[in-house]
């Protein structure tokens, strides 16, 4: 459905590298996640795929169309929700949706079935100005606007950034339903915990794809044993664990520390911690999360 080969992009006459030799492809009906912090190049990638920017080198196609030559065809078949997209603040919810429907040459009625689920949640506020909606509502309205012309591919640039946990979960549930209707979705997010919602993910940092795989495989490929160490004074624990010579990496992770050892047979950590007079310390092997994988990849 989407394929990129060797895409590179720089800004400011080559001074800032946004993307370095990116190649991957997304299958039809796939929910594909671009995961990475700000500055990873996610937005640039979206803009190249939506025909808004030219890549410096490399080729890309969307739905079989070339992003440079066939930009008109691509613009007819994709839905796009930019990261800083904030709708028309001074138009009502309904006016916004109507406007975007018309711009894409359709009507709300024609494709209502597709957006019904989502639109019903914001319908009580349809006469409210979009500027007066909360983050979660805006995001739903934005999704409706991007969907209203029944696109084959949906590009969503950081739709969940700055939105609370409840709205984020609802949003991902909506995406799962859209996926069932056969729409190919490419979504970016800085929240690593959302990776598991995707069929496949690309971990990105500073214009480079660190890894592409489905989340389960990525976790399976985590090369070391990962331990969670807990104690009530976690800040002190962090200092002490880091001072232990056998530790390879140690990061705070929620209420625990995630620790890997240089030598996987190292068994002396608990003994060391007891000498530090911890009474409530515990240590166990855990399954890594995508965030652990990302941190691991950043280390290399």
């Amino acid at each position: 459905m989407i394929s990129l080969s060797n895409i590179s992009k720089t800004y400011n006459k080559g001074q800032i590298t946004a993307l370095k030799h990116i190649s991957f492809s997304v299958d039809h009906g796939e929910l594909f996640g671009l995961i990475g912090p700000d500055g990873a190049g996610k937005t640039t990638l979206f803009r190249i795929l939506t025909t808004l920017l030219f890549a410096d080198e490399g080729d890309a196609t969307v739905n079989g169309f070339d992003v440079v030559h066939d930009y008109k065809q691509i613009r007819n078949c994709v839905g796009y929700m930019p990261g800083k997209f904030s709708l028309y603040q001074d138009l009502t919810v309904e006016e916004n949706l109507n406007f975007f429907a018309t711009i894409f040459g359709t009507t709300i009625r024609e494709n209502y079935a597709l957006v019904k689920d989502i639109y019903q949640q914001i319908e009580p506020f349809k006469n409210r100005m979009a500027g007066k909606l909360s983050g979660g509502m805006k995001q739903k309205l934005g999704l409706c606007c991007a969907l209203i012309h029944k696109p084959d591919v949906l590009f969503l640039d950081e739709p969940t950034t700055g939105v609370d946990v409840v709205s984020r979960r609802e949003f991902w549930e909506m995406l799962a339903r859209l996926k069932k209707q056969g729409i190919t979705i490419v979504v970016s997010t800085p929240y690593m915990d959302e990776a598991n919602r995707c069929d496949r993910i690309a971990l990105m940092q500073k214009g480079v794809v660190l890894s592409i795989d489905d989340p389960a495989n990525m976790i399976k490929d985590f090369p070391q044993k990962l331990y969670a160490i807990k104690a009530s004074n976690s800040f002190q624990l962090l200092q002490d664990v880091r001072n232990y010579s056998g530790v390879d990496s140690c990061f705070a992770f929620g209420d625990a520390l995630h620790v890997t050892f240089r030598d996987s047979s190292d068994q002396n950590m608990m003994a060391y911690l007891y000498t530090k007079a911890y009474t409530d310390v515990s240590m166990e092997i855990i399954t890594p999360s995508i965030e652990d994988c990302f941190i691991h990849l950043l280390k290399d």
């Binding site: 808004l52 613009r75 007819n76 709708l87 028309y88 711009i103």
Partner: peptide, 13 residues
């Protein structure tokens, strides 16, 4: 500024 221009450009409009 609103980001709507991006959407307009990506549309067939």
């Amino acid at each position: 500024e609103l980001g709507t221009m991006e959407v307009l450009l990506v549309s067939p409009f």
